[in-house]
């Protein structure tokens, strides 16, 4: 058992502005725990979490890998989420490195084909498009869930750069719900970007049917 990160430094007030870990967070922790051995064997240099919120997930992977074994980069558009992530790192003795930005914008050129573990628990709730756009602009708590059409408007932008980001042995863990159309996401990633995937875990949690999907590079075995 890998202990769930200590978040006791965050208060009810903090969670007015920063996403409080919930079922979608925990299913991602469960998926990482299940893959712990494999993740350690990868010997990652770069772990990158998009939308780190409280920092819970990155602190957890830091605990799996060891605090000095990799770099733990985090991004979030919400400045209070970045602060919470920094504090959660300190509290759990994992050097989390929050950068306030959308997706990976300032990191993309340098991280091209370098990210070993990419994580995203996105704003996946289907909403009106304007609601998602406003939420992205306001950088507050609504941005934690408002996902626009099919809940995919933010995620979609990331899907288009995953191929560019992943290292040779890199993998990408994505949290999704049924309304996001997981089979369509997987088909697109395979057909357009040649990235196969597998469902690591899926479960019903209250009204949500949650998935963690893992994408990786196709490894072609050369036949003799």
């Amino acid at each position: 058992m890998i202990p769930t990160p200590d978040l006791s430094h965050l208060t009810k007030d903090d969670f007015e502005h920063v996403y409080e870990p919930a079922e979608d967070t925990f299913i991602l922790l469960d998926a990482l725990e299940q893959d712990a051995e494999e993740l350690r064997n990868l010997k990652p240099s770069f772990c990158l979490e998009i939308g780190s919120g409280s920092g819970c997930v990155s602190a957890f992977i830091g605990t799996i890998l060891g605090s000095s074994a990799s770099m733990f980069l985090c991004t979030d558009i919400n400045p209070l989420a970045c602060r919470a992530t920094l504090k959660t790192g300190t509290r759990n003795k994992i050097p989390l490195e929050p950068v306030q930005c959308s997706l990976t914008a300032p990191l993309l050129p340098r991280l091209s084909h370098s990210v070993d573990v990419l994580l995203f628990n996105p704003p996946y709730v289907p909403t009106f498009r304007e609601e998602a756009e406003d939420a992205q602009g306001h950088r507050g708590i609504q941005g934690a869930w408002a996902g626009g059409a099919a809940g995919m408007e933010v995620t979609q932008h990331l899907l288009d750069i995953v191929q560019e980001l992943l290292s040779e042995t890199g993998r990408f863990y994505l949290v999704a719900v049924k309304q996001n159309d997981v089979p369509a996401i997987r088909r697109k990633m395979l057909e357009v970007y040649n990235l196969p995937s597998e469902i690591v875990i899926q479960r019903q949690a209250g009204r949500e049917h949650l998935f963690v999907v893992k994408f990786f590079r196709q490894h072609i075995t050369i036949m003799k």
């Binding site: 950068v99 306030q100 959308s102």
Partner: peptide, 18 residues
């Protein structure tokens, strides 16, 4: 100019700069 405050770099851009 990208400000750094409390140890966090703010790399966000305004809509028209993206």
């Amino acid at each position: 100019v990208y400000p750094i405050s409390n140890g966090i770099p703010n790399m966000l851009l305004a809509e028209h700069e993206i």
